[in-house]
Design a binder for these strands. Structure first.
Lengths: 128, 128
DNA sequence: CGGGATCCTAAGCGATACTG
DNA sequence: CAGTATCGCTTAGGATCCCG
């Protein structure tokens, strides 16, 4: 595959208030993507996410979910049962985010080895 | 526009070593995307990037470029002239990254207002 | 069960000064 | 011009304990 300058949309703004950076500021943190992807599969309870993600602290799960809810990407539904039960679900907008994320995922899968190789090549070159 | 679960590729891995997170770890920092996009337009000298980006410190420009070079996304060409001149250019792999980044950019442009609206709605709801 | 509140550390990043 | 080196701040985020 080859990508030339003209293949790439030149609509990307950069200097002043760059939209791409906006998304990354929102979703570029350590856990948001993971949560969005999991919720893309199905609705999850708090504890389910907590167990599914492996490594996330309760605190960060709460904070990240709260931010996602705030931005309208996720809905929070608290059931007044005992013990309490809270369901998190992607909104319509949240689901549309899965599309560009998949593109990124595809790229990652395609080039993961190349990056690793480049990295090792580089590290050998500088250490030697 | 509507996105259902079945519209979205379920190939996204999550729990153990998620490729999407790899990319975001690499390019989710404050400046990488900006640099990649700028280099997507044309080769830039160090100082050109420094002026073009507005707000980046010399230190972070150096560090970010070095990381991009290490991962094989950018090439560094130092000309042995005086004063010195160093050119940075996207590699072939670096250019392919512009494609998923554009997808993300498109999404950002499409939903930027929605997010802002959701955020304000939410903030009013919690403050009130 | 689903959080909140608090404390603490490590990383990210900017500012500044110096160099080949 | 294109960096390097050092410092210091600010933030992200983990750990722990508490609570309805």
């Amino acid at each position: 595959m080859s990508v030339t300058h003209t293949d790439v949309p030149m609509t990307l703004k950069v200097t002043d208030d760059c939209p791409v950076r906006d998304v990354l500021d929102r979703v570029g943190d350590k856990w948001s993507v993971l949560i969005v992807v999991l919720l893309g599969r199905r609705t999850h309870r708090f504890g389910e996410l907590h167990r599914a993600i492996e490594g996330i602290s309760q605190r960060m799960l709460t904070l990240t979910l709260r931010a996602l809810v705030r931005d309208g990407l996720v809905t929070r539904t608290a059931h007044a049962t005992v013990p309490p039960r809270v369901d998190y679900e992607l909104t319509e907008m949240g689901r549309t985010l899965l599309v560009p994320l998949s593109a990124l995922d595809e790229w990652a899968n395609a080039h993961r080895d190349d990056i690793r190789a480049a990295r090792e090549r580089h590290d050998r070159g500088t250490t030697a």
